[in-house]
Amino acid sequence: TPQNLTRTNFEHLERLSNRSRYVARSCKEIRDRYNEQEDGLYYLTTANGMVYQTFCDMTTAGGGWTLVASVHENSINGRCTVGDRWSSQQGNNLNLPDGDGNWSNRNTFGTAEGATSDDFKNPGYYDIKAEDMSVWHVPNNFPLDHWNLAAILRYHTNNRFLRLYGGNLFQLFKHYPVRYNIGSCSNRGPAVPIVYDHGDRETTRMFYGLKPRKEFEPGFITFRAINNERAAMAICSGVKPIAGCNTEHYCIGGGGYFYPDQCGDFPSFDYDSLGMGQGWS
């Protein structure tokens, strides 16, 4: 009956709101300390006592994964314009080599619930000391309870590589700045092997253009790639560049300048027009 439904909803909400009583710095701590095994939103607290809410994946490979960021392309035609928080919102500018600098600062933005509709970054990005990373590619605008099922690609690392780089991306990108002209193509950061949770090496390969497929090897996540024109990109998701330096066609995030004009969070994914299966796209 409608009354029962209301009661069920109430009890459900009551159970969810109990989560605000947990004290933990990561989803792993919540899973370990409170034995929570349900995916969803939880409150976390930073070392300085700042409380924030984020999504916890409590199921993949033993669970305890904390969502710390999302990179969302609001307009593939934009060139370092509004919404390009993971490169630059200040135009393609040689004088702003770091762009917005969000890969290596303590700025935060967006909400966990809105992570597939806009860029997201929470204090966990710099506060959590982690060992491994997991990445989900979720079609834009999907609601949180369907992220897992809707994802076109999901994978994680399992070799604890973050221990070597300070425990999170904030520290890793201090070692490998995402900055225009910081080095050349041969100066890329680490490429870490991945374990697939949805998809495989072949589906990863097919997500990118014909020409990029000749440049990379799938089955890795790579950090701070640099292209022929000395533009820096933050992450090559699912791939490792091995033969060529046109990483602007398959790596995301970046500094503030791309020669000539490919600046953006998904820099030149649209080079030969989108989804046509030709050239670089």
Binding site: C27, G124, E131, M133, S134, F207, I235, L274
Partner: peptide
């Protein structure tokens, strides 16, 4: 890149 890839947000997790 494929339309699928470009029209998907990239969610980053730590553990």
């Amino acid at each position: 890149a494929s339309k699928e890839m470009t029209e998907a947000a990239v969610l980053l997790f730590y553990r």
